[in-house]
Simulated assay, not measured.
Amino acid sequence: MDKNVNSFDALYAEAGSHRSVIAWDELLAFVRRFPHIAAFNAALLAQQNAGAIFVETERAWQDKHDRLLNDDAEVLVVLHPFAPVRFVYDVADTHGPPVPDAAMNPFTAAGAPTWDGHRLVMDVLRRKGLSIAGLPTTQSPTVMLARVLFELALIYAGHRGARPDLGVAASDADLDGRQARFEAECITWLIAGRIGLKMAATGSLKGYLKHGELMPPVSRDRVLHSVNAIEKLFGGALRLGETVREDVPSLFPLSGQLSAP
């Protein structure tokens, strides 16, 4: 695991000394609410402004929402490909027409995953050289997707061993099995929430979130980077959320199917 002193793991290791950090359960909930930006960037936002609701760049606020920055708007910093950082601003630091709920909560009115969506997901994974074995027998696409996400979590966290073709290093050989499972549960629950799935936390994560049980050891960096990598396979969380709900029209009308010999 990355020993970068500026990592989230280092940040939390120093908590209680001279730094104040957001609790892990609160960070998970925050990241789930920001599917339009990468999970790692959402975590960066949480450390800067835990009350943020919806962020955009200054130009995006103007061009997409016809809103302007307040004079005292607080600048927030996120990472950006091919540039060191990008500056964004929370909706509370802007003024103008109301922001549509569909923009801030894109999956509020979305339906459940479909079997067509599941097939599209599996097609993407096959093209990426990813094979998911041991999938359950179920009539629920949501249950199937949950298992696929959990297996991807184990792979991208390195708990299934090194995958150089995916840029994944193996996790430490002496890593406790409970930690590996907890990290996979966190990754699965984060992605599920970011794509609007009604999927309950399970295992140790459920015990931690619902019953106040002690949290197992966890690499926060590994969790966040794994979420980023899995969502990137599908073009980001928003695109993944659309993909799992795809309903491919039949090539034949229903009446024709019913009358076929």
Rank of each mutant, 00 (worst) to 15 (best):
K3W: 13
V5G: 08
F8C: 04
D9F: 04
A10F: 07
S17K: 15
H18G: 12
A23W: 14
A23K: 14
D25A: 08
E26W: 12
H36M: 03
A38W: 07
A38D: 15
A39M: 07
F40R: 14
A43R: 00
L44A: 09
A46K: 03
Q47W: 08
F54G: 10
F54I: 14
E56G: 03
E58M: 11
R59K: 15
H65V: 07
D66T: 05
R67H: 05
E74L: 09
L79F: 10
L79H: 11
Y89T: 04
G96M: 02
G96V: 00
P98Y: 07
T108A: 14
G111N: 04
R119I: 12
L120D: 10
L120Q: 12
L125K: 07
L125F: 04
R126P: 01
R126G: 08
K128E: 12
G129I: 01
A133I: 13
A133E: 14
T138R: 00
T138F: 01
Q139W: 10
P141H: 05
V143E: 13
L149N: 05
L149E: 08
F150M: 15
F150I: 12
I155R: 03
R163P: 01
P164Y: 08
G167T: 09
A169C: 07
S171V: 13
A173V: 15
D174I: 15
A180T: 12
R194Q: 14
I195W: 05
K198R: 14
G203Y: 06
L205G: 06
G212I: 11
E213P: 06
R220Y: 10
S226V: 11
E231I: 11
G236N: 00
L240E: 06
G241Q: 05
E242F: 07
V244Q: 05
R245L: 08
R245E: 05
R245A: 03
E246G: 08
D247R: 11
L251R: 10
P253Y: 09
L254D: 14
A260L: 14
